[in-house]
Design a protein around this nucleic acid. Structure first.
Lengths: 136, 136
DNA sequence: CTGTATCCAGTTTGATACTG
DNA sequence: CAGTATCAAACTGGATACAG
């Protein structure tokens, strides 16, 4: 495969991409966002259940992540005027479609994480990224 | 859909996940990583071409990203002992498989970014995340 | 229970300057 | 051309305390 350069300036990373990939990555590439929506993929959950399910998330990050997701229409928040207060979070159709899209990446992770770990170990021994083999 | 809670403690985000998702996300969820491998999906490129193609990336981040990808066996680096120096970066088979996996996410971004942007605009007007509608 | 507000340490990143 | 080195600014995220 030869070196390829799109015409008319800097390459777009993907055909049809107008910068959306970068934008969407800034949002859903965040680990807490992905873990949160994936946790909700099984069904709606309360705030406290989410905090228990998404291992390691702090109150601050959970609240922030939920707000972002709600703002973007990926989840819906339903507050019941009870005592004690109860709030349920659930995926919207849009949110569910994102889960499907992300699933491919997750499958890749599960299938290839061992290979990646192996490469990294070999690279550490061989010093990849520190010494250079020359060709030519 | 009722509230769901996996048995035996905190939910796993995905079936079959042993923490790899979080690990892989920390690596390939990084925007520069994704943009770099996606740029390379069209064919091998030199260092300077990559810097021009991945809009906004700094020299530091490009170098760092390339090293990580090389270490993990996602790309190969080939240095030619010429003058001036020439270095080509290309995806490995593993790297190409990741491109395929990520494509679903990219397609989602392209298909739904407008919807997300619209939701965000509406949320801003309606004050989502600031005032609460009550139910019950 | 469901958040909000604040403080602070650690990490990330861009700019800049320099080297082989 | 293809990096490396260094620094400071910006951002992230956790801990903590407090509120409706």
């Amino acid at each position: 495969m030869a070196s390829v350069r799109q015409a008319g300036g800097p390459c777009q990373a993907w055909p049809g991409d107008g910068g959306f990939v970068r934008e969407v990555l800034d949002r859903i590439g965040d680990k807490w966002t992905v873990l949160t929506i994936s946790t909700l993929s099984s069904g709606s959950l309360r705030y406290s259940d989410l905090q228990a399910s998404v291992v390691g998330i702090s109150q601050r990050m959970l609240t922030q992540t939920l707000k972002h997701l709600e703002r973007d229409g990926l989840i819906v928040r339903t507050a019941y005027a009870e005592v004690p207060p109860r709030v349920e979070y659930a995926l919207t159709d849009l949110g569910r479609s994102l889960v499907d899209a992300v699933r491919g990446m997750v499958d890749w992770a599960v299938a290839h994480h061992g290979e990646v770990a192996g490469n990294r170990a070999v690279s550490a021994v061989r010093g990849v990224g520190r010494e250079r083999g020359r060709v030519g």
